[in-house]
Design a protein around this nucleic acid. Sequence first.
DNA 1: GCTAAACAATTATGCATTCG
DNA 2: CGAATGCATAATTGTTTAGC
Length: 380
Amino acid sequence: MEATLITNPTPQRALRGHRPARPSPRVANSAEHQAALAVRLTPRDKWIARMLWEHRVLTSHQVTALAFPSFRSGRQRLRELYLWGVVDRFQPFVTVGTAPMHYVLAPAGATVLAAEDGRDVKEMGYRHDRAFAVAHSLRLAHTVGVNEWFTTLVARARHEPGALTAWWSETRCSRHFGDLVRPDAYGRWQQGDRQIEWFLEYDFGTEPLAKLAGKLSGYAALAEATGITTPVLVWLPTSRREVNARRVLARAQAQLTEPHTVPVATAAAALLDPDAAHPSPADEVWLPLDPEGRCADGHSPASPTPGPASRHRSPRTTPRPARCRLRPRRCRPRHSGRRAGVRFSQDGGGRGGRGAAHSGSDRRGRRRCGRLPVHQRWRC
DNA sequence: GCTAAACAATTATGCATTCG
DNA sequence: CGAATGCATAATTGTTTAGC
Protein backbone atom coordinates (compact mmCIF):
# COMPACT_ATOMS: atom_id res chain seq x y z
CA MET A 1 0.00 0.00 0.00
CA GLU A 2 2.93 2.29 0.67
CA ALA A 3 4.47 2.04 -2.78
CA THR A 4 2.68 3.54 -5.68
CA LEU A 5 0.81 1.32 -8.02
CA ILE A 6 3.01 2.28 -10.93
CA THR A 7 6.20 1.02 -9.32
CA ASN A 8 4.64 -1.91 -7.53
CA PRO A 9 1.48 -2.97 -9.31
CA THR A 10 -0.89 -5.20 -7.42
CA PRO A 11 -1.09 -8.57 -9.15
CA GLN A 12 -4.53 -9.76 -10.07
CA ARG A 13 -4.27 -12.82 -7.82
CA ALA A 14 -3.82 -10.59 -4.80
CA LEU A 15 -7.16 -9.02 -5.43
CA ARG A 16 -9.08 -12.20 -4.82
CA GLY A 17 -7.00 -13.98 -2.28
CA HIS A 18 -9.30 -13.31 0.63
CA ARG A 19 -12.94 -12.85 1.10
CA PRO A 20 -13.88 -9.23 1.44
CA ALA A 21 -13.98 -7.95 4.97
CA ARG A 22 -17.21 -6.74 6.41
CA PRO A 23 -17.32 -2.99 6.05
CA SER A 24 -18.61 -2.23 9.50
CA PRO A 25 -18.57 -3.92 12.87
CA ARG A 26 -21.89 -5.50 12.14
CA VAL A 27 -22.22 -9.02 13.39
CA ALA A 28 -22.55 -12.10 11.25
CA ASN A 29 -25.79 -14.00 11.23
CA SER A 30 -24.44 -16.83 13.34
CA ALA A 31 -26.30 -19.10 15.69
CA GLU A 32 -24.80 -17.18 18.60
CA HIS A 33 -26.01 -13.96 17.13
CA GLN A 34 -29.49 -15.34 16.64
CA ALA A 35 -29.49 -16.37 20.28
CA ALA A 36 -28.52 -12.85 21.25
CA LEU A 37 -31.24 -11.42 19.05
CA ALA A 38 -33.82 -13.64 20.71
CA VAL A 39 -33.14 -11.70 23.89
CA ARG A 40 -32.84 -8.28 22.35
CA LEU A 41 -35.57 -8.08 19.76
CA THR A 42 -38.88 -6.71 20.88
CA PRO A 43 -42.20 -7.51 19.24
CA ARG A 44 -42.01 -4.09 17.72
CA ASP A 45 -38.63 -4.87 16.21
CA LYS A 46 -40.04 -8.02 14.68
CA TRP A 47 -43.05 -6.12 13.48
CA ILE A 48 -40.74 -3.65 11.75
CA ALA A 49 -38.84 -6.51 10.16
CA ARG A 50 -42.10 -7.99 8.95
CA MET A 51 -43.20 -4.68 7.51
CA LEU A 52 -39.91 -4.39 5.65
CA TRP A 53 -40.35 -7.87 4.28
CA GLU A 54 -43.87 -7.07 3.16
CA HIS A 55 -43.24 -3.61 1.76
CA ARG A 56 -39.60 -4.01 0.76
CA VAL A 57 -38.33 -0.59 1.77
CA LEU A 58 -39.31 2.04 4.31
CA THR A 59 -37.55 5.27 5.13
CA SER A 60 -36.55 6.26 8.63
CA HIS A 61 -39.39 8.76 8.59
CA GLN A 62 -41.88 6.08 7.68
CA VAL A 63 -40.75 3.51 10.23
CA THR A 64 -40.75 6.03 13.04
CA ALA A 65 -44.14 7.38 12.06
CA LEU A 66 -45.48 3.84 12.05
CA ALA A 67 -44.01 2.54 15.26
CA PHE A 68 -42.33 5.10 17.50
CA PRO A 69 -43.47 7.92 19.69
CA SER A 70 -40.79 10.25 18.38
CA PHE A 71 -38.54 10.49 15.38
CA ARG A 72 -35.50 10.56 17.58
CA SER A 73 -36.21 7.31 19.38
CA GLY A 74 -37.08 5.57 16.15
CA ARG A 75 -33.81 6.49 14.52
CA GLN A 76 -31.91 5.32 17.53
CA ARG A 77 -33.53 1.91 17.49
CA LEU A 78 -33.21 1.55 13.75
CA ARG A 79 -29.51 2.16 14.06
CA GLU A 80 -29.27 -0.66 16.56
CA LEU A 81 -31.26 -2.98 14.34
CA TYR A 82 -28.87 -2.08 11.56
CA LEU A 83 -25.82 -2.87 13.67
CA TRP A 84 -27.36 -6.19 14.64
CA GLY A 85 -27.89 -7.11 11.03
CA VAL A 86 -31.65 -7.18 11.37
CA VAL A 87 -32.12 -4.47 8.78
CA ASP A 88 -29.97 -3.07 6.02
CA ARG A 89 -30.04 0.50 4.96
CA PHE A 90 -28.94 2.77 2.19
CA GLN A 91 -29.13 6.41 1.37
CA PRO A 92 -30.19 7.20 -2.16
CA PHE A 93 -28.56 10.09 -3.93
CA VAL A 94 -30.64 13.21 -4.09
CA THR A 95 -29.67 16.44 -5.74
CA VAL A 96 -30.47 18.68 -2.80
CA GLY A 97 -29.91 17.99 0.86
CA THR A 98 -29.49 14.51 2.25
CA ALA A 99 -31.97 11.73 1.73
CA PRO A 100 -33.35 9.85 4.73
CA MET A 101 -32.06 6.37 5.37
CA HIS A 102 -33.97 3.69 3.49
CA TYR A 103 -34.33 0.41 5.32
CA VAL A 104 -34.69 -3.10 3.95
CA LEU A 105 -34.75 -6.48 5.63
CA ALA A 106 -31.31 -7.95 6.35
CA PRO A 107 -30.43 -11.66 6.66
CA ALA A 108 -30.55 -11.81 10.45
CA GLY A 109 -33.99 -10.23 10.39
CA ALA A 110 -35.14 -12.68 7.75
CA THR A 111 -33.92 -15.56 9.90
CA VAL A 112 -35.93 -14.24 12.82
CA LEU A 113 -39.09 -13.92 10.76
CA ALA A 114 -38.66 -17.35 9.22
CA ALA A 115 -38.16 -18.90 12.64
CA GLU A 116 -41.24 -17.12 13.91
CA ASP A 117 -43.25 -18.66 11.10
CA GLY A 118 -41.71 -22.08 11.52
CA ARG A 119 -40.05 -21.97 8.13
CA ASP A 120 -36.54 -21.53 6.93
CA VAL A 121 -35.27 -18.54 5.07
CA LYS A 122 -35.27 -20.28 1.72
CA GLU A 123 -38.89 -21.32 2.05
CA MET A 124 -39.71 -17.76 2.95
CA GLY A 125 -38.17 -16.67 -0.31
CA TYR A 126 -35.77 -14.17 1.16
CA ARG A 127 -32.56 -13.39 -0.63
CA HIS A 128 -30.20 -10.73 0.55
CA ASP A 129 -29.25 -9.53 -2.90
CA ARG A 130 -32.87 -9.22 -3.95
CA ALA A 131 -33.80 -7.36 -0.80
CA PHE A 132 -31.08 -4.85 -1.48
CA ALA A 133 -31.83 -4.67 -5.18
CA VAL A 134 -34.58 -2.19 -4.43
CA ALA A 135 -31.82 0.33 -3.75
CA HIS A 136 -31.04 0.32 -7.45
CA SER A 137 -34.55 -0.25 -8.67
CA LEU A 138 -35.94 2.33 -11.01
CA ARG A 139 -39.18 1.89 -9.17
CA LEU A 140 -37.70 2.82 -5.80
CA ALA A 141 -39.38 6.22 -5.75
CA HIS A 142 -42.68 4.60 -6.68
CA THR A 143 -42.42 1.98 -3.92
CA VAL A 144 -41.45 4.58 -1.36
CA GLY A 145 -44.30 6.76 -2.57
CA VAL A 146 -46.88 4.04 -2.08
CA ASN A 147 -45.50 3.28 1.37
CA GLU A 148 -45.62 6.95 2.24
CA TRP A 149 -49.24 7.04 1.14
CA PHE A 150 -50.14 4.38 3.68
CA THR A 151 -47.79 5.67 6.34
CA THR A 152 -49.58 9.00 6.38
CA LEU A 153 -52.85 7.14 6.91
CA VAL A 154 -51.40 5.37 9.93
CA ALA A 155 -49.92 8.59 11.24
CA ARG A 156 -53.30 10.23 10.94
CA ALA A 157 -54.96 7.37 12.77
CA ARG A 158 -52.67 7.97 15.73
CA HIS A 159 -54.21 11.38 16.25
CA GLU A 160 -57.68 11.16 14.78
CA PRO A 161 -60.42 8.55 14.60
CA GLY A 162 -60.04 5.69 12.21
CA ALA A 163 -57.55 2.92 11.70
CA LEU A 164 -55.86 1.23 8.83
CA THR A 165 -56.77 -2.41 9.23
CA ALA A 166 -55.15 -3.82 6.11
CA TRP A 167 -52.21 -2.83 3.99
CA TRP A 168 -51.12 -5.22 1.34
CA SER A 169 -48.09 -4.65 -0.81
CA GLU A 170 -47.99 -4.83 -4.56
CA THR A 171 -46.29 -8.20 -4.27
CA ARG A 172 -49.01 -9.65 -2.07
CA CYS A 173 -51.70 -8.28 -4.33
CA SER A 174 -50.03 -9.90 -7.30
CA ARG A 175 -49.90 -13.17 -5.47
CA HIS A 176 -53.64 -13.09 -4.86
CA PHE A 177 -55.06 -11.23 -7.83
CA GLY A 178 -52.13 -11.17 -10.24
CA ASP A 179 -53.90 -13.07 -12.95
CA LEU A 180 -56.41 -10.26 -13.29
CA VAL A 181 -55.09 -7.09 -11.70
CA ARG A 182 -51.83 -5.86 -10.26
CA PRO A 183 -52.68 -2.91 -8.04
CA ASP A 184 -49.96 -1.03 -6.22
CA ALA A 185 -51.62 -1.87 -2.93
CA TYR A 186 -54.78 -3.01 -1.25
CA GLY A 187 -56.01 -1.27 1.86
CA ARG A 188 -58.83 -1.26 4.34
CA TRP A 189 -59.81 1.56 6.65
CA GLN A 190 -62.00 1.18 9.70
CA GLN A 191 -63.84 3.91 11.52
CA GLY A 192 -66.12 2.80 14.28
CA ASP A 193 -68.32 0.11 12.80
CA ARG A 194 -67.75 1.37 9.31
CA GLN A 195 -65.08 0.36 6.90
CA ILE A 196 -63.94 0.84 3.38
CA GLU A 197 -61.52 -1.17 1.30
CA TRP A 198 -59.85 -0.26 -1.94
CA PHE A 199 -57.21 -0.96 -4.51
CA LEU A 200 -54.63 1.74 -5.01
CA GLU A 201 -53.22 2.78 -8.32
CA TYR A 202 -50.36 5.12 -7.52
CA ASP A 203 -49.41 7.12 -10.56
CA PHE A 204 -46.11 8.90 -10.65
CA GLY A 205 -46.75 10.68 -13.89
CA THR A 206 -44.44 8.36 -15.77
CA GLU A 207 -46.94 5.88 -17.13
CA PRO A 208 -49.04 6.49 -20.23
CA LEU A 209 -52.55 7.26 -19.12
CA ALA A 210 -53.93 4.83 -21.65
CA LYS A 211 -52.15 2.03 -19.80
CA LEU A 212 -53.66 3.19 -16.55
CA ALA A 213 -57.14 3.25 -18.06
CA GLY A 214 -56.57 -0.17 -19.57
CA LYS A 215 -56.38 -1.64 -16.08
CA LEU A 216 -60.06 -1.05 -15.43
CA SER A 217 -61.09 -4.06 -17.49
CA GLY A 218 -58.99 -6.22 -15.20
CA TYR A 219 -60.77 -4.83 -12.16
CA ALA A 220 -64.09 -5.50 -13.84
CA ALA A 221 -63.05 -9.08 -14.42
CA LEU A 222 -62.00 -9.40 -10.80
CA ALA A 223 -65.31 -7.97 -9.62
CA GLU A 224 -67.16 -10.43 -11.78
CA ALA A 225 -65.07 -13.36 -10.62
CA THR A 226 -65.42 -12.57 -6.93
CA GLY A 227 -68.76 -10.84 -6.82
CA ILE A 228 -67.11 -8.12 -4.76
CA THR A 229 -67.11 -4.50 -5.72
CA THR A 230 -63.92 -2.86 -4.55
CA PRO A 231 -63.27 0.80 -5.30
CA VAL A 232 -60.16 1.66 -7.25
CA LEU A 233 -58.44 4.77 -5.97
CA VAL A 234 -56.19 6.49 -8.45
CA TRP A 235 -53.60 8.79 -6.91
CA LEU A 236 -51.96 11.26 -9.24
CA PRO A 237 -49.19 13.77 -8.73
CA THR A 238 -50.82 16.93 -10.02
CA SER A 239 -54.30 18.28 -10.62
CA ARG A 240 -53.48 18.77 -14.26
CA ARG A 241 -52.66 15.13 -14.73
CA GLU A 242 -55.71 14.20 -12.74
CA VAL A 243 -57.95 16.05 -15.17
CA ASN A 244 -56.44 14.18 -18.09
CA ALA A 245 -56.56 10.88 -16.27
CA ARG A 246 -60.22 11.32 -15.41
CA ARG A 247 -61.10 11.85 -19.02
CA VAL A 248 -59.30 8.70 -20.12
CA LEU A 249 -60.57 6.69 -17.17
CA ALA A 250 -64.16 7.77 -17.75
CA ARG A 251 -63.97 6.63 -21.33
CA ALA A 252 -62.54 3.28 -20.33
CA GLN A 253 -65.11 2.83 -17.60
CA ALA A 254 -67.97 3.57 -19.96
CA GLN A 255 -66.79 0.78 -22.20
CA LEU A 256 -67.06 -1.78 -19.44
CA THR A 257 -69.98 -4.16 -19.59
CA GLU A 258 -70.92 -3.31 -16.03
CA PRO A 259 -69.25 -0.02 -15.15
CA HIS A 260 -70.81 0.11 -11.70
CA THR A 261 -68.73 -2.88 -10.57
CA VAL A 262 -65.58 -0.77 -10.80
CA PRO A 263 -66.10 2.44 -8.83
CA VAL A 264 -63.21 4.77 -9.41
CA ALA A 265 -62.16 7.87 -7.53
CA THR A 266 -59.21 10.09 -8.24
CA ALA A 267 -57.14 12.49 -6.19
CA ALA A 268 -53.97 14.45 -6.65
CA ALA A 269 -51.10 14.80 -4.23
CA ALA A 270 -51.11 18.52 -4.92
CA LEU A 271 -54.53 18.80 -3.25
CA LEU A 272 -53.12 17.96 0.16
CA ASP A 273 -52.50 20.86 2.45
CA PRO A 274 -48.82 20.69 3.37
CA ASP A 275 -49.47 22.89 6.39
CA ALA A 276 -52.08 20.58 7.86
CA ALA A 277 -51.16 18.64 10.96
CA HIS A 278 -51.42 15.24 9.33
CA PRO A 279 -52.11 15.51 5.63
CA SER A 280 -53.13 12.13 4.30
CA PRO A 281 -55.27 10.46 1.67
CA ALA A 282 -58.02 10.40 4.30
CA ASP A 283 -58.52 14.10 3.66
CA GLU A 284 -61.21 15.55 1.50
CA VAL A 285 -59.41 15.14 -1.77
CA TRP A 286 -61.30 12.44 -3.63
CA LEU A 287 -63.42 12.92 -6.67
CA PRO A 288 -65.50 9.98 -7.82
CA LEU A 289 -65.43 9.15 -11.47
CA ASP A 290 -69.09 8.28 -11.41
CA PRO A 291 -70.79 10.82 -13.68
CA GLU A 292 -73.50 11.22 -11.08
CA GLY A 293 -70.83 12.36 -8.68
CA ARG A 294 -71.32 9.67 -6.13
CA CYS A 295 -68.58 8.55 -3.86
CA ALA A 296 -67.36 5.03 -3.88
CA ASP A 297 -69.79 4.16 -1.12
CA GLY A 298 -72.72 5.34 -3.13
CA HIS A 299 -73.29 8.59 -1.26
CA SER A 300 -73.25 11.82 -3.09
CA PRO A 301 -70.56 14.10 -1.74
CA ALA A 302 -72.90 17.02 -2.19
CA SER A 303 -75.65 15.54 -0.04
CA PRO A 304 -75.67 16.25 3.66
CA THR A 305 -75.28 12.64 4.61
CA PRO A 306 -74.35 12.42 8.25
CA GLY A 307 -71.20 10.57 8.82
CA PRO A 308 -68.01 10.79 10.78
CA ALA A 309 -66.08 12.08 7.84
CA SER A 310 -68.58 14.52 6.50
CA ARG A 311 -69.44 16.57 9.51
CA HIS A 312 -67.35 19.56 8.71
CA ARG A 313 -67.98 19.77 5.05
CA SER A 314 -69.11 23.20 4.13
CA PRO A 315 -71.63 23.63 1.38
CA ARG A 316 -69.84 24.49 -1.79
CA THR A 317 -71.03 26.88 -4.37
CA THR A 318 -68.23 26.40 -6.81
CA PRO A 319 -69.14 24.86 -10.12
CA ARG A 320 -66.41 22.30 -9.69
CA PRO A 321 -67.55 18.94 -8.35
CA ALA A 322 -67.09 18.52 -4.63
CA ARG A 323 -64.30 16.46 -3.28
CA CYS A 324 -65.09 13.88 -0.66
CA ARG A 325 -63.28 11.72 1.78
CA LEU A 326 -62.78 8.02 1.86
CA ARG A 327 -66.10 7.38 3.47
CA PRO A 328 -66.30 4.05 5.25
CA ARG A 329 -69.68 2.45 5.16
CA ARG A 330 -71.38 0.34 7.74
CA CYS A 331 -71.10 -3.24 6.75
CA ARG A 332 -70.23 -6.48 8.34
CA PRO A 333 -67.40 -8.40 6.79
CA ARG A 334 -69.18 -9.51 3.69
CA HIS A 335 -66.53 -11.76 2.38
CA SER A 336 -64.67 -13.37 5.20
CA GLY A 337 -62.85 -16.32 3.81
CA ARG A 338 -63.67 -15.48 0.25
CA ARG A 339 -61.50 -14.00 -2.40
CA ALA A 340 -59.09 -16.75 -3.31
CA GLY A 341 -58.28 -17.94 0.14
CA VAL A 342 -57.58 -14.52 1.54
CA ARG A 343 -58.24 -14.15 5.21
CA PHE A 344 -59.26 -10.89 6.73
CA SER A 345 -58.23 -11.16 10.29
CA GLN A 346 -58.40 -8.23 12.60
CA ASP A 347 -56.73 -9.49 15.70
CA GLY A 348 -54.63 -6.85 17.26
CA GLY A 349 -51.59 -8.70 18.42
CA GLY A 350 -50.04 -9.97 15.28
CA ARG A 351 -47.67 -12.83 15.70
CA GLY A 352 -45.38 -11.14 18.15
CA GLY A 353 -45.04 -13.76 20.80
CA ARG A 354 -48.09 -12.81 22.77
CA GLY A 355 -48.87 -15.50 25.24
CA ALA A 356 -45.56 -17.26 25.21
CA ALA A 357 -44.12 -16.12 28.49
CA HIS A 358 -40.76 -17.57 29.03
CA SER A 359 -38.13 -15.12 27.90
CA GLY A 360 -37.07 -11.78 29.19
CA SER A 361 -37.54 -10.17 25.84
CA ASP A 362 -41.14 -11.23 25.80
CA ARG A 363 -41.80 -9.67 29.11
CA ARG A 364 -40.18 -6.45 28.06
CA GLY A 365 -41.94 -6.64 24.77
CA ARG A 366 -45.35 -6.92 26.29
CA ARG A 367 -44.65 -3.94 28.40
CA ARG A 368 -43.71 -1.92 25.35
CA CYS A 369 -46.61 -3.33 23.47
CA GLY A 370 -48.93 -1.86 26.02
CA ARG A 371 -47.64 1.56 25.23
CA LEU A 372 -47.65 1.14 21.52
CA PRO A 373 -50.12 3.07 19.44
CA VAL A 374 -52.40 1.51 16.90
CA HIS A 375 -49.63 0.52 14.58
CA GLN A 376 -50.00 -3.13 15.36
CA ARG A 377 -53.66 -3.37 14.57
CA TRP A 378 -53.27 -5.03 11.26
CA ARG A 379 -51.47 -8.06 10.11
CA CYS A 380 -49.63 -8.04 6.86
C1' DG B 1 -29.10 27.20 6.88
C1' DC B 2 -31.36 22.80 6.93
C1' DT B 3 -31.63 17.95 7.75
C1' DA B 4 -30.02 13.72 9.52
C1' DA B 5 -26.84 11.05 12.29
C1' DA B 6 -24.03 10.36 16.30
C1' DC B 7 -23.03 11.01 21.00
C1' DA B 8 -23.99 11.73 25.86
C1' DA B 9 -27.02 11.96 29.56
C1' DT B 10 -31.29 11.09 31.89
C1' DT B 11 -35.40 8.59 32.98
C1' DA B 12 -38.30 4.49 33.19
C1' DT B 13 -39.00 -0.33 33.77
C1' DG B 14 -38.48 -5.19 35.02
C1' DC B 15 -36.31 -8.47 37.80
C1' DA B 16 -34.03 -10.49 41.67
C1' DT B 17 -32.78 -10.08 46.22
C1' DT B 18 -33.32 -8.55 50.88
C1' DC B 19 -35.80 -6.93 54.86
C1' DG B 20 -39.59 -6.59 58.18
C1' DC C 1 -45.49 -13.44 52.41
C1' DG C 2 -45.51 -8.75 50.81
C1' DA C 3 -42.97 -4.47 50.49
C1' DA C 4 -38.69 -2.18 49.72
C1' DT C 5 -34.28 -1.81 47.59
C1' DG C 6 -30.52 -2.30 44.21
C1' DC C 7 -29.10 -3.44 39.65
C1' DA C 8 -29.19 -3.92 34.65
C1' DT C 9 -31.13 -2.53 30.57
C1' DA C 10 -34.41 -0.23 27.53
C1' DA C 11 -36.33 4.07 26.14
C1' DT C 12 -36.18 8.78 25.52
C1' DT C 13 -34.36 13.44 25.16
C1' DG C 14 -30.88 17.17 24.54
C1' DT C 15 -26.82 18.51 22.25
C1' DT C 16 -23.23 18.28 18.93
C1' DT C 17 -21.38 17.06 14.46
C1' DA C 18 -21.45 16.29 9.52
C1' DG C 19 -23.09 16.60 4.81
C1' DC C 20 -25.44 18.96 1.34
